[in-house]
């Protein structure tokens, strides 16, 4: 039995590795409530890591894919459509398994690109491989959201831009892109929440845990298996996720207000706190 302070010091950063806390996880009968509180909280580091990075990189790819889908050129629109279909049409869980098994097939010695040999081993690690899958997955969903928003930009706005002599990159940067973002934002908020929740699947699929570094649900599952009592660990991790979700809603709400600040007060679309389940 250790005190709560000891649990905190030993476990709060344990998800980063055994150099950042206790070498061994608490086992069996020595597990107390504080251990569960702090170790599961520590696992959230990975959930946030996956969600933030996948959303950040996914945003740019999504804009590119959405523009590709609207492109009049088949050479651009077809691949974009195929990409979206592939990742929206199959379960993320299966994507994790498949990509992991594909990544481990890469040559062990690395790939030779010209004079450089690219190491491939790191790609099978969860922090890279799972992030890669989540990035592609959220890009596809977000691209579909942005594509819908691009199509619903009011014609008048675009005609007005033409009348002002805006064209090309300037027109995109000043009119098309901000309007698309404003229209897509409520759905995009929703996608961010889905993605945050999807990060819990990483360590339940093919990606192995290194040195018992895992996400919040990995540790909750660990505790449930060690104590034979799921009635503490799972509600705890559930509560953490409610808080995180509220955080996401708050953060995206701030951005939403900024995106809509030019509109007359009555016309401002309030970010709908009523959940949408479009994914």
């Amino acid at each position: 039995m250790s005190s709560c302070a000891e649990s905190f010091n030993g476990l709060i950063l344990r998800a980063l590795g055994r150099d950042f806390g206790d070498r061994l996880l608490p086992r069996g009968l020595e597990i107390n409530f504080c251990d569960q509180v702090f170790l599961i909280a520590s696992g959230l580091i990975w959930n946030v890591y996956f969600a933030v990075l996948a959303l950040f990189f996914g945003f740019f790819l999504a804009v590119a894919v959405a523009l590709g889908k609207t492109s009049p050129s088949r050479w651009l629109s077809r691949p974009a459509e195929a990409f979206v279909f592939l990742f929206r049409g199959s379960p993320l869980f299966v994507q994790f398994f498949f990509v992991y098994e594909a990544l481990v097939l890469l040559p062990r010695a690395g790939i030779e690109i010209g004079p450089i040999t690219m190491d491939t081993q790191w790609m099978t690690r969860a922090w890279a491989g799972a992030l890669f899958v989540l990035f592609l997955n959220t890009s596809a969903y977000t691209a579909e959201i942005f594509f819908g928003a691009l199509k619903s930009i009011p014609k008048g706005d675009l005609e007005a831009a033409d009348a002002y002599g805006l064209a090309g990159w300037t027109k995109f940067r000043r009119i098309t892109f901000p309007t698309m973002l404003r229209l897509a934002w409520p759905s995009y908020t929703n996608e961010a929440i889905f993605l945050l929740h999807a990060t819990t699947l990483v360590f339940f699929s093919a990606f192995p845990a290194w040195q018992q570094m895992g996400d919040a649900l990995y540790y909750a599952n660990y505790f449930a298996a060690q104590t034979f009592n799921p009635f503490i660990a799972y509600p705890l991790v559930g509560m953490y996720f409610i808080l995180l979700t509220l955080g996401v809603i708050g953060l995206f709400g701030v951005v939403n207000r900024r995106l809509n600040r030019h509109l007359p007060r009555a016309a401002r679309a309030r970010l709908r706190f009523r959940p949408q389940y479009i994914r």
Binding site: R23, Q121, A209
Partner: peptide, 25 residues
């Protein structure tokens, strides 16, 4: 393994541990 200084990777099935050695993980 956790008690040694080596780095432990865990897999849910035994078969996957063999695959991990073969593919260099």
């Amino acid at each position: 393994v956790a008690d040694t200084s080596a780095t432990l990777i865990e897999f849910p099935t035994a078969d996957e541990t063999i695959a991990a050695v073969r593919n260099g993980t």
